[in-house]
Design a binder for these strands. Sequence first.
DNA 1: ATAAAATATTTCAAGCTTAAAGTTTCGTAC
DNA 2: GTACGAAACTTTAAGCTTGAAATATTTTAT
Lengths: 156, 156
Amino acid sequence: MVAGPLPAPSGPGKDRLRLWIRLLRASRTIEAELRERLKKEFDTTLPRFDVMAALFRAPEGMLMSDLSRFLLVSNGNVTGIVDRLVSEGLVARARRNGDRRTSMVRLTDEGSKSFATMAAAHEAWIGELLGKVSEEDARRLTGMLTSFRSNWEGRE
Amino acid sequence: MVAGPLPAPSGPGKDRLRLWIRLLRASRTIEAELRERLKKEFDTTLPRFDVMAALFRAPEGMLMSDLSRFLLVSNGNVTGIVDRLVSEGLVARARRNGDRRTSMVRLTDEGSKSFATMAAAHEAWIGELLGKVSEEDARRLTGMLTSFRSNWEGRE
DNA sequence: ATAAAATATTTCAAGCTTAAAGTTTCGTAC
DNA sequence: GTACGAAACTTTAAGCTTGAAATATTTTAT
């Protein structure tokens, strides 16, 4: 997946393949840097941060299935991460009146406060890591990725 | 990390943040699709495919440390993946004459044949998943990502 | 009302991942 | 040539990840 430097294959489709490899390497590199900083600065992980970010945007709470769909990860995966966040007091599960299969998951006050701090640092890190991308280029790149989104995101 | 739709925050740096989120969602979505197909079609995993792809480009073999640096993953990680590939007969470790700490890792004939088949399918999948991206747009996007690479890849 | 299908979630096994600690081997300075 | 630090790997513990199986609850069809 992360093929790279040396040869430079050509032929039909090679440009798309090369694009995919660049895309993957860029996101892996940035992701690794963010993971390391989250660990060092806040003693947390990327998956925990992701879940908290999703919940921060939904003060009324989210269902487990909403979380897993939004985060693009499996159902069982979210269970474990939420379990750990609950045991750390950052997230709470609330039984619902109507449907007893589901529970609303939301940030606790502590979780919300904790996330606000991390989010500010996170945004600054992105600004630093993508510093050489001008705001205008960023908008243009975002636009290109957005316009192709329907191609790979079959559902959205 | 994978924040998304609803609100549309603005302010300095928000464009870069939005770019990062798009980048991450694009690569995660495509990655998930590839993982699923590798599993279904070839009963293998993305990490195994990555290792084999790296080795395929280096017929003379690679050191474990070369592999982990190239693939952007930790040293210990590669050990486990290579162990499994060895036990499947797709990869071989060869002791070196000079330095007894290291071993050259390379594809076996079976591994090489197996990879060639998967690589063809893989390239076709990418062509399909990125089908709406014209070859020209692909080259342009690749160029933009490449020109910003030094920003996030401190080493290369 | 009852059975069957659908939904929401958790559990499980296997594998991936990292950071840190441990092992072996090498190079180099005395 | 001995000791010391560096280098290449492996091992370990904890956590992430998936797909599939298991639970529990709700909905739908009869």
